[in-house]
Design a protein around this nucleic acid. Structure first.
Length: 461
DNA sequence: TCTGGGGTCCTAGGACCC
DNA sequence: TCTGGGGTCCTAGGACCC
């Protein structure tokens, strides 16, 4: 028998909005929108919201949108990353019960692989996993199965668009592959962005099929480099992308945010930058690495043409690679004092760490007189305390606890239902009005977001 | 008032070295 | 007179992803 690896791609539908709906089921069927940082624009919108014309990046504070939101009772939420990240972990934990080989592709997507089995076996597992996630987490998931990762992503598109598939679509035969590619606009292929799509369209290439079967490999290599060629072959059913089961360590880590207001004073900028440094260094330690270079940047609001503009970036090579929040903070604040210009209104700051090495492969420096072992121990203690009591539990002397008035604007924040004790849904047992032998369970949350009822039979888990 | 925040890979071309 | 040539490193820019 021919041996094949079946690539299984799972994608949570409208992930951020679905995380909210999981805890507010009365929003199912209603338009829901999740905003970017600072509540600036839409980054996730349900089908109902899309039908009103809201898309990725729509600036909802501009006309006509405020009126549209009001007229249609659109539920609008700020980003809530603690909630989304935690739901992502739960989603992936369930998948691990079904698939042995997984690749964590993104917050809401996973690739899995099943080798040397008929496609029907992979499909059966996928259907069970999708049903399990729907039941347990109330997250809608779509799944595509094919011989290459790129084709599996194509299949997922069809699983999403056509309810007839019941959430799982497999591309098994060559006939199915060609049919799917003929229906798919070339710009929607994974790996073909807008630039290449525009260029291809000018050459008369409209669909994924036109691309995979109408172009020569030489042309693709010349104009779209080897990455384009990989996509081209994958669409033909020739696997060129493996599952990355072990995520490669990051080569650079960036933490940056826009402020909720314009910031002009150095103290507030120092406070913000120190906060970002602490997040950045914690990410380094989490992947057991250290960085030998940091970069600090500071920028004004480019949309405020009436104000003087500045975009400053400063690289600082470090004497010894480090993951210490304290040491990185010292250099970052030095850099900040260099790039800072009094009198300007800043809108965004950030810190990037790069030249990242494994923490046990650090090149030492003859003139280094820092007690690095002690600092490493201090950081381990720091991580333990903040891991247990939250990021706000510890501060360095440079920070002003609880006074982050530069913090991103999040006026429509949903509760952290799964990660903050005060926000846990409350569960109250009470008898059902009609005697069907069950219990009514009332969920509510501390922010007064309302409550809903669900029924559960006696004795059920 | 509000305009996201991360990342990766590839290539061309210049600098530099022997 | 012949005005090298091969190799590597670095950077900027472009393209892509979620």
């Amino acid at each position: 028998m021919e041996t094949t690896t079946w690539y299984v791609h799972l994608d949570a539908n409208k992930f951020y909005a679905s995380c909210i709906r999981a805890f507010m089921p009365w929003l199912n069927g209603c338009p829901v929108v999740v905003l970017s940082n600072n509540d600036g624009c839409s980054i996730c919108q349900t089908k109902e919201a899309q039908r009103l014309g809201i898309g990725m990046g729509t600036k909802l504070f501009e006309a006509p949108w405020p009126q549209v939101l009001r007229d249609n009772d659109v539920a609008v939420f700020s980003t809530n990353f603690p909630l989304f990240a935690d739901m992502s972990i739960k989603f992936k934990t369930v998948l691990k019960r079904y698939f042995a080989t997984l690749e964590d592709y993104s917050v809401d997507e996973e690739f899995c692989a099943e080798s040397d089995v008929p496609c029907s076996v992979a499909e059966e597992k996928a259907r069970a996993a999708v049903a399990d996630i729907g039941r347990g987490l109330h997250l809608p998931v779509s799944c595509g199965i094919a011989r290459t990762k790129t084709l599996a992503k194509v299949a997922t598109r069809f699983a999403k668009d056509y309810p007839g598939y019941g959430g799982v679509c497999a591309i098994v035969t060559d006939e199915q592959r060609c049919k799917a590619l003929r229906l798919l606009p070339v710009g929607e292929v994974w790996g073909i962005g807008r630039r290449h799509a525009d260029r291809l369209k000018k050459l008369g290439v409209e669909t994924a099929y036109d691309f995979a079967h109408g172009m020569t490999p030489e042309w693709v290599l010349k104009h779209m480099t080897v990455t384009g060629l990989r996509t081209y072959l994958e669409l033909q059913g020739i696997p060129r992308l493996d599952l990355e089961t072990v995520p490669p360590p990051k080569q650079s880590i960036m933490v940056s945010r826009s402020f909720g207001r314009n910031v002009g004073d150095l103290d507030a900028l120092t406070d913000a930058l120190t906060y970002y440094v602490n997040m950045n260094a914690a990410k380094l330690r989490r992947q057991h690495s250290k960085a030998a270079r940091i970069s600090v940047f500071l920028s004004t609001n480019p949309f405020r043409e009436d104000l003087e503009q500045d975009f400053a970036w400063l690289d600082v090579p470090l004497p010894v690679a480090t993951s210490s929040s304290l040491e990185i903070g010292e250099y970052a604040r030095m850099a900040l004092r260099v790039v800072y210009r009094p009198g300007l209104w800043y809108k965004k700051a950030g810190i990037m760490t790069s030249e990242i090495v494994r923490e046990n492969a650090v090149q030492s420096n003859l003139f280094d007189c820092r007690d690095r072992a002690k600092e490493d121990r201090l950081m381990r203690a720091w991580d333990f305390v903040t891991g247990r009591y939250g990021r706000e539990a510890l501060h360095t002397g440079r920070q002003a606890p609880g006074q982050h008035d530069w913090w991103v604007r999040q006026e429509k924040l949903s509760p952290c239902w799964t990660t903050r004790r005060e926000d846990f849904p409350r569960c109250t047992d009470c008898p059902l009005p009609s005697g069907d032998g069950g219990q009514e369970i009332v969920w509510a949350d501390s922010n007064g977001y309302g409550s809903f009822t669900t029924r559960r039979r006696h004795g059920a888990a």
